[in-house]
Design a protein around this nucleic acid. Structure first.
Lengths: 161, 161
DNA sequence: CGCTAACAGTTCGTGCACTAAGTATCTGGA
DNA sequence: TCCAGATACTTAGTGCACGAACTGTTAGCG
């Protein structure tokens, strides 16, 4: 209601595909992930798998829930991802004997060793994207602001009933 | 080789999940798309479907290839998307009689009428995200720069053999 | 004319993301 | 103690993204 606030007579232009932020954002995301692909392939990882490994290199063993929270993704997304990484030999999944409910995800020697190769990835990507450390920081800040805007606002419910 | 250029002794910090641009970018993309979801649900569209409709509202009828190019997505992604939108009654798919190879994607009356409801979407989203028109423009510029960085650089091949 | 290469779209297989539903476990309170 | 609710993870189902293989069509070239 009151479409005048914020929108108004700009509405027609607002529907142009090219100037949609959501469009630019999804294309940028897919493009950057695509740029990682050939680099990560050498490590035997997909991009989401790479993010999981980053989690584990920071702290292991840890629970699925903890990884799920760190990556801001549903447990149902992480679960099969961990299964594939286990099949690839990079991590282990086992129940903690004190608590039969939680899953302890740990690194195998191969998974821990992979970190050495991964160390070169950020630098390689900055080079391939032609970005300076400052530009990366600036973009990172923008993204964090956007993430805060989505989770900070009263979004989860449709706001007004 | 020569990991000193660009990377160097920052490598350890570079692997921290939180400061990965690619991580922030994918989370931001998923978050924003997720924020669109309740709004687009009222129109009966998913976010990728919304982008296809934006294409068609700008110009219809047009070919699958043209939509695929505009959205920077593979024809194989667009094809089933169009099928579902046809099933939903928003567009038509028919062969051009002069050229049995290309597909003419056109709007149905329902698909054309949907534009009126969609006019409110950008304003609604700006409000929900708490972004000003200027902030949206700025973010949009950043994303376009990033997209240019991925397609501009010699990325497609792995560069050196 | 006939053949080959390029092109338009579709289909298939794999992996991700997310909702919903299901299983098992743990915890807090009557 | 026992039970209701919360919690941890898994599974199923839908849709998207992408590479690869496939069908059919068109265009160009000898």
């Amino acid at each position: 209601m009151t479409a005048i606030t914020g929108a108004g007579r700009h509405q027609d232009n607002d529907l142009l595909l090219e100037q949609q932020l959501c469009f630019a954002l999804t294309v940028a995301s897919r493009s950057v992930v695509g740029a990682y692909k050939p680099v990560l392939e050498k490590l035997g990882l997909t991009h989401p798998q790479y993010l999981v490994m980053l989690c584990l290199w920071e702290s292991a063993p840890r629970t699925l829930r903890s990884i799920s929270d760190a990556l801001a993704q549903a447990p149902a997304t992480i679960s099969p991802l961990l299964r594939r990484l286990e099949e690839a030999g990079f991590l282990t999944r086992q129940r903690v004997d004190g608590n039969e409910r939680t899953l302890a995800v740990g690194l195998t020697p191969a998974g821990a060793a992979l970190r050495q190769q991964a160390l070169a990835v950020p630098g390689t990507m900055m080079e391939r994207l032609g970005l300076t450390r400052e530009q990366v920081s600036e973009l990172h800040r923008s993204m964090m602001g956007l993430i805060a805007a989505t989770s900070g606002g009263n979004l989860d419910p449709v706001a007004e009933s």
